[in-house]
Write a protein that binds this DNA or RNA. Structure first.
Lengths: 213, 213, 213, 213
DNA sequence: AATGAATGAGAGTTCATTCAT
DNA sequence: AATGAATGAACTCTCATTCAT
């Protein structure tokens, strides 16, 4: 009769799993509520309600409202740069193909910006500049810049005088322009034309910046 | 008083010199307090206190907190673009001098961003996207882009395929990069080097974009 | 939060016994505070304090000050007309007894007015004419008039030309006179004498109004 | 050359006349503003503005908001009872004509209530029970009751047991019923029918109350 | 005598957070 | 672990009143 009365599953698991689900629900609810109502307009009660959880539970897992924002921001940024990093990491060494992958880079950045624009805008523009968010964004940029620089260096055709600066400028420019375009557009410019134009902008820069030039 | 809901009284226009001084003090205090504490962290009482004025006086001239922000934003933007517009309007027609005035343009934009960076950051990044601010910023950009385009067209050496788009991209890029640089810098890059690099970025683009190219 | 203006959240319905007690305390405190200080002189903080509850709790259950007044009014009216309606509903059919039940009717109305005269005065005279209160009062009157009319019709001795109008006049007259008497009296007139006099007034009217007359 | 340089008009007159006009303007503006926006909804600034006067001037002549209300109330009551008193004072001694002048009394009271109902309602129902208003109303009632009593006594046909009480009841009843009717009506009852009905009500009472009865 | 800018106590209301259940 | 009732400091905004001009 030993080991008979208790199911083989560990006892603590369900609790932890439940807790995990609760946290998950809160973060997701947070993302939606923040996106819909802005930071100041969102209350912890809204979020708890949307998560199907009581405020008490919310405070069981997050010390305050900002902590929810930080988590939401972190996840959002991770989800955003994932595809971009993947692209950068799998880029073929192709000297003459520079414009080609620039094109693909810009294209993917734009795609990523168009995905959940409200949340994105919130995090980058409206949210009080919480250290956590600032850190997130800087880290994202550094991470991308680092990979872009690696590509520059690996690519024989692009041997720049100051590859690090170039990489940062490129990343910042693409980030800023796609962000802007995703939100306000530029006249009637189509996304394709926009991507082409930004690619041209960067290609010109990189050619000019070659060490030999 | 339920169901009586009289419309919010129109605010007083300052007529006497004393009133004018009060308004001035409120706007200036608003700029400072907003810059120091952020939008949400600033209260109308803070602003009134800093202005050396009672809350009542504040509400005599501004219907609510947002209205103060709008006024602060408007003045800030006017003060910011003034020098840049002046530069653009007095630029000499100089085909071969393109890099030269690009350089001066970037330089002045950076100077302008370094002036009251906290306030600037507030208005562009943190403030809830108040229509008034959005309008301000878009108008500023349009205004600059228009002048830049005029310069492009007047300058024989830069006959672009799509001068309008190019002008917008240039303005947005400069705005974004200088803004960013003013706030976070890029490693140890000096302001001079930064300006030179951005100039190179834009010059490459414009050369590439020539109609003949 | 400009232009976000979320609709006022629907208030919580008390579910737990504790919450029910809180609501009860607020309504009772409201009745007292309103009666003592008048509507304008009463603040939500006064009421909360008197109820032994925080303002926050008050707003948990009532969207605003008026809502408290409405609830207080409703309860007061219900409590007031209860005894009167009971009297009317149990009146014996007694043709020659008309003066008798008129007497009892006036007597009970006076009793009811003497009960919590301050609150009563507030609701009928001072309170901003909130729809809820108006409705309450009209409904009360209609309700009483309807029953009075039924009594008239049932009573063979009182077959009026226009029983509906008569019923309304009777109810309004009794209401107005007892209300007045309860608050200011008439010289040194004793309550008994007052009741007798009003009964005489009405009896005269009803006799005169008989169809045959 | 004596008495030559100064015009014969007294110097102070213009100032007083102007002041008188100012007071007049304020009281009239007060009446309108109170009637339109209710007591709480009216501000001294509203009243001053409407009167074409500065707040400062308003406080030159009235110590506070209540004082304006009191004056407005007083004038209103005077204007109201004027015609009624005139009627009572010129009534012919006419024993058999009792119903006749009751009819005219009720009719004139109704007319008077229909004149500026908003202001009237404000003063009797909404305004905080300011002593001044209470006094006004009581005085009005006393004044009318006194005259009615005189009529009763003069009129041989109506020799009541307690003429004073009867007079008060009559006045109060007419006041209450016409007030009510002017504001809410009774079903579809026409004003004529209403007057007739109230007359009947009172006539019945007075007949019953004769000493001999 | 008149102006109207300035005052500031105090109103109603919100919401992040706590804690008894 | 979870609930949700309770908290209360803090906010925005009003308006009767004062007083320098």
């Amino acid at each position: 009769m030993v080991g008979h009365e208790s199911p083989p599953e560990p006892r603590r698991r369900p609790r932890q799993a439940r807790a995990q689900r609760t946290v998950e629900a809160i973060v997701e609810a947070g993302a939606r509520v923040f996106a819909e109502r802005g930071y100041a307009g969102s209350t912890t009660n809204h979020i708890a309600l949307r998560a199907g959880v009581s405020v008490g539970s919310l405070y069981e897992y997050f010390p305050n409202k900002d902590a929810i924002l930080a988590e939401v921001a972190d996840r959002h940024v991770q989800r955003m740069i994932g595809p971009v990093i993947e692209l950068l990491d799998t880029a073929e060494p192709a000297p003459e193909g520079l414009p080609d992958w620039l094109d693909r880079f810009v294209e993917r950045m734009l795609a990523v910006h168009l995905e959940s624009p409200e949340l994105h805008r919130l995090l980058l523009e409206e949210a009080p500049h919480h250290p956590a968010i600032d850190a997130c964004v800087l880290q994202m940029e550094t991470s991308l810049a680092h990979r872009v620089r690696t590509l520059f260096e690996r690519d024989a055709g692009v041997s720049l005088r100051d590859p690090d600066t170039a990489a940062h400028l490129v990343v910042q420019t693409v980030e800023a322009l796609t962000h802007r375009f995703a939100h306000h557009g530029i006249h009637e410019l189509s996304p394709q034309a926009f991507v082409a134009e930004v690619t041209r902008l960067l290609a010109g820069y990189l050619e000019r910046s070659r060490r030999g030039a």
